[in-house]
Design a protein around this nucleic acid. Structure first.
Lengths: 193, 193
DNA sequence: ATAAAATCTTAACCTGGTTCAAGATCTTTC
DNA sequence: GAAAGATCTTGAACCAGGTTAAGATTTTAT
């Protein structure tokens, strides 16, 4: 199992010693993913945090009318998954689906709890991780309010380089909070300029 | 200084012993706030996390055209402030302003770092705090996409009971991502039903 | 108490984005 | 490799919410 990516990610916030690396390594489950595969399905309790070793996934919410709302994309070096139910042990309302072939590291809730209990460094790592995610999300809310769909699209392309090749336009549209039709028009307009 | 509210808040996630309570207590600075007072101004580096002991505050972002975008309200028992610059020590882009008289507990960055180093329980507490805030924010993004301005307004009233009396309509409108005029129309429509 | 300033309301008009529908392209499957 | 299914594009009609402006109400300062 290749743990280089996750270890160097964690080490950018804290410094793990050998024991901690070993403990982490033995907590993780490697899983190869196929394009289109459903990694977590809404309705079941989420059991893992998901770290991307390679490939692309998206997390989305299906509303009462059956429409999907993409809330997050993730590629190599990002965490994904359904934070909600991990802590509460309730069924998650989010699904996570592979957008390409790749490999994920599954980090089971029980192992995470153990690691958090034993090595405070992981508490720190996750505190900082959540803190940063929180700030990014606050920024996204501001962006959604103050920016037009066109500039949100441009900002999506900047923030997720290469992602566009792996995601269907309807999912990008969903992430941006617009219809596929309008995204199509927006792209055409941008090309013509 | 009254630390009952903050201690019972923290104890809902972890269990502090006497020493930890004492250490926390000596880290906090009590501050009485007046209505309209600017507690943190954008442009300066944020030095504190802010815990509400009593009263109401809002955190907002001023865009390049001079328009304010309210990103958060807080009342008794909530944390507030500008997470962004605390970690990076860069000037914050957010301002925090008192909406009523009250009392806040200021938690200086340096003291927080010390506490986090010495007592892993605080790492855990803040990890969970940020985790929960993150989930709430994810939910708010979904709500913004799938719900109409009217239902967001109703949901604001539910989630912040009593807040409406302390906040001007233009700030509520800003939080909801609509214009004050449209909020005015919406409220009228709701009254007539 | 009164003037000045800020906020809130109402109304007419405007626009970014939606909806619906039809055709064009790309993907899967047998 | 043809048929069926998705996805993507285009256009026309439509609507939620924005903009502007003017008057009404509330708050603040003197």
């Amino acid at each position: 199992m290749n743990i280089d990516v996750i270890v160097s990610h964690i080490n950018s916030y804290v410094t793990l010693n050998e024991e901690e690396v070993r403990a982490l390594s033995s907590s993780l489950i490697s899983k190869t993913i196929k394009q289109g595969e459903l990694i977590v399905e809404s309705g079941e309790p989420a059991r893992y945090m998901i770290f991307m070793n390679a490939g692309y996934v998206m997390t989305y919410y299906t509303d009462k009318d059956g429409f999907d709302h993409v809330i997050q994309f993730a590629s190599t070096g990002w965490w994904s998954g359904d934070l909600y139910s991990l802590s509460e042990n309730k069924p998650t309302i989010y699904s996570t689906r592979a957008l390409s072939a790749g490999e994920v590291l599954l980090f089971p809730k029980a192992a995470q709890d153990q690691l958090l209990d034993k090595y405070p460094k992981f508490e720190r790592y996750f505190r900082i991780l959540f803190h940063n995610a929180l700030m990014r999300l606050q920024f996204r809310i501001i962006e959604n309010y103050s920016a037009t769909a066109e500039s949100r699209y441009l900002s999506f392309r900047e923030r997720f380089p290469g992602m566009e090749q792996h995601v269907s336009q309807k999912h990008i549209a969903s992430y941006l909070g617009i219809t596929p039709e309008f995204l199509s028009k927006t792209r055409k307009k941008l090309q013509q300029q």
